[in-house]
Design a binder for these strands. Structure first.
Length: 580
RNA sequence: GCUGGCGUAGCUUAGCGGUAAAGCACCUCGUUGGUAACGAGGAGACCGUGGGUUCAAUCCCCACCGCCAGCUCCA
């Protein structure tokens, strides 16, 4: 269950499957040319799980159109047209596509000296740099998936094109596997499980992107918070709590208004003063730092807060728990001397790994995002990040210009149980905000110095992290996280008092236990609690009552065991301690 | 925000120009059952909201709201 195949990451050479899918995109464009001659093809690349092709056409493509197109595509595949390329001059290319401004634009922009090539299958020729299968017959299985709007070149001021998504594989078996993967992903969808397991909801009356945590979800969130808090305490972080709404001035000083005003909720005016919902916790933590004089002897100073922030996200982008308008970060800001920067940064990376491993994640990717306009301090900050990664032997990729407005950052991505990537934690080095707020500390030399800040959120947003956990575990939460760890189920009402007694004994030991007092047959109750994915169901009938035992029905295990209540308590305690 | 699709009971869905049907969940009664659905009965829907067309709208048209898939954005 937790180790299904991941067609998203084929074992074979990635380039081959990309070539195949790119060829499939040509086949799609060929079919569109035949069936919808008014549509102008633009671009059609291979993507992670398939391909797409963007067309300019007034009439939208319908679901029926997709079926017709797919049928035509299969004919083209069957005909096994060879893919032939030829190099042409820029003028020839422009002439060949004189009715297609998009292709002309591409042809014009190809750098001088680079080859300009046309590729042909059967009766369809496309301007394309190449990278194809030898012939259309190489496509063993294909299908069209959906239509969506997409801006030409991804710019919202450009005309909107119609993008047709599809996928293609060498064999039908691979396509079947891909479907199985999608089905598995759908089963794990946190929006579906969130409702089924009664964890949270989003309410139309309250607005999109705002999460209502139900008791079961809130219990889990509390456990996650407690785990994180324990780690922070051990590492010398100090808790702080800051307001959700403050004078706009604070964000003017920090630069957030100027840099991210579009993503902030608008001002709230009272008594002629403008307030803003907080979009980030850092300015608040800075005020605490700046509230008194600091000495180098105080540093590093590490302030942590489960800080709830509000950011305006476009309605169309909201998505369950993973893309919201109000969320709580496991945030912390470290104020340190430049000499301490390296060690502090490394320490946050250690903590990130401890966190992710506790939740059963084992595959990580690291992205170093640099700042577009780099100054001398950015060099120092980048070096600190690189050194931290290299000293931990962590390979990383570089995202040029993807950094925060105040400095470069390290993003930690992970893969879940079925191989999907998620972006969670981030650690950022900041020389800018200390400058803007004129932060200082008295050095051993008696002079004032500027501290460096590290911003870090390891789970990121608790909402998002919770969404990822739901999908990662598929709702089968380990006992230490499960909102209800065991349900005591009497076979008949003659054992109900005994069931309550067991519940009381286990609750007294701190476990999260309930009793099913419903008037249903055993099979019904078992089924019900299985679908609720409880780690343990404790069945008690005549013989258990007589012996003072419980019959343990453990999630994922067919064999049942009859053990004493104390033995079960020991087992559960051990499992919780091991975070299983 | 943009493109397309979709909004019927708590959930999943059927239906259709004449104010609605089923399964699950829920409640009641019977039943006291040994590991993934016991039986019977009951209650539950202004068919997303507002306009329009029509003798008549859940159904057709328009707008808005929400959801879904993308795009864009993502400190």
């Amino acid at each position: 269950m937790t180790t299904s195949t991941t067609p998203a990451r084929p074992e074979g050479p990635l380039a081959d499957i990309a070539h195949l899918r790119h060829t499939a995109a040509h086949v799609l464009a060929y079919a569109v040319q035949d069936l919808f001659p008014d549509a102008k093809p633009t671009i059609g690349p291979a993507i992670e799980n398939g391909f797409y092709y963007d067309f300019d056409r007034t009439e939208p493509f319908t679901t029926e159109d997709l079926e017709t197109l797919a049928a035509r595509m299969r004919e083209i595949v069957k005909a096994d047209y060879p893919m032939t390329g030829r190099r042409v001059s820029r003028e020839e290319a422009i002439e060949a596509f004189r009715d297609n401004p998009y292709k002309i634009e591409i042809a014009r922009e190809i750098p001088e000296g680079d080859p300009i090539t046309l590729y042909t299958i059967g009766g369809f020729t496309d301007l394309c740099r190449g990278g194809h299968a030898d012939s259309t017959g190489a496509i063993g299985a294909l299908e069209l998936e959906s239509v969506a709007g997409a801006y030409w070149r991804g710019k919202s001021e450009n005309p909107m094109l119609q993008r047709i998504y599809g996928t293609a594989f060498v064999t039908q078996q691979e396509l079947d596997d891909y479907h199985a993967f999608l089905e598995e992903a759908a089963k794990r969808d946190h929006r579906k499980l969130g409702a089924e397991l009664d964890l949270y909801h989003v309410d139309e009356m309250a607005g999109g992107g705002l999460i209502f945590w139900h008791p079961r979800g809130a219990i889990m969130r509390g456990l996650v918070e407690a785990f994180i808090r324990d780690g922070l305490r051990e590492r010398g972080y100090l808790p702080v709590v800051t307001p959700h709404i403050v004078h706009e001035n604070l964000y003017a000083t920090s630069g957030h208004l100027e840099n991210f005003g579009d993503s902030m909720f608008g001002p709230i005016e009272v008594e002629g003063q403008r307030f803003r919902l907080k979009p980030m916790n850092c300015p608040g933590h800075i005020l605490i730092y700046a509230n008194e004089g600091r000495s180098y002897r105080d540093l590093p100073l590490r302030y942590s807060e489960f800080g709830t922030v509000y950011r305006f996200e476009l309605s169309g982008t909201l998505h369950g728990l993973t893309r919201v308008r109000g969320f709580t970060q496991d945030d912390a800001h470290l104020f340190c001397t430049p000499e301490q920067l390296q060690a502090e940064f490394e320490q946050t990376v250690d903590e990130a790994l401890r966190l992710m491993e506790a939740f059963g994640f084992s595959e990580f990717e690291y992205f170093l995002s640099t700042r577009a306009e780099r100054g001398a301090t950015d060099e120092i900050a980048e070096a600190a990040i690189r050194n931290a990664l290299e000293s931990h032997n962590l390979p990383y990729q570089i995202d040029d210009g993807g950094g925060a407005f105040y400095g470069p950052k390290l993003d930690i991505n992970l893969r879940d149980a079925i191989g999907r990537k998620w972006q969670l934690g981030t650690v950022q080095v900041d020389f800018v905000l200390p400058e803007r707020f004129e932060l200082k500390y008295r050095g051993s030399d008696g002079q004032d110095h500027r501290p460096v800040m590290i911003h870090r959120a390891l789970a990121g947003s608790l909402e998002r992290f919770f969404g990822v956990l739901i999908e990662h575990y598929g709702g089968n939460f380990p006992a230490w996280l499960a909102p209800t760890q065991a349900m005591v189920v009497p076979i008949s009402e003659h054992q109900l008092d005994y069931a309550y007694e067991i519940r009381g004994r286990l609750r007294a030991r701190g476990f999260r236990i309930d009793t099913d007092a419903s008037n249903e047959k055993l099979g019904y109750k078992i089924r019900h609690w299985k679908t609720q994915k409880l780690p343990y169901i404790l069945v008690v009938g005549k013989s258990e009552l007589a012996d003072g035992t419980v019959n343990v029905n453990e999630r994922g295990i067919d064999e049942k065991r009859t053990v004493s209540v104390d033995a079960f308590a020991e087992e559960l305690a051990a499992r919780i301690a091991a975070k299983r």
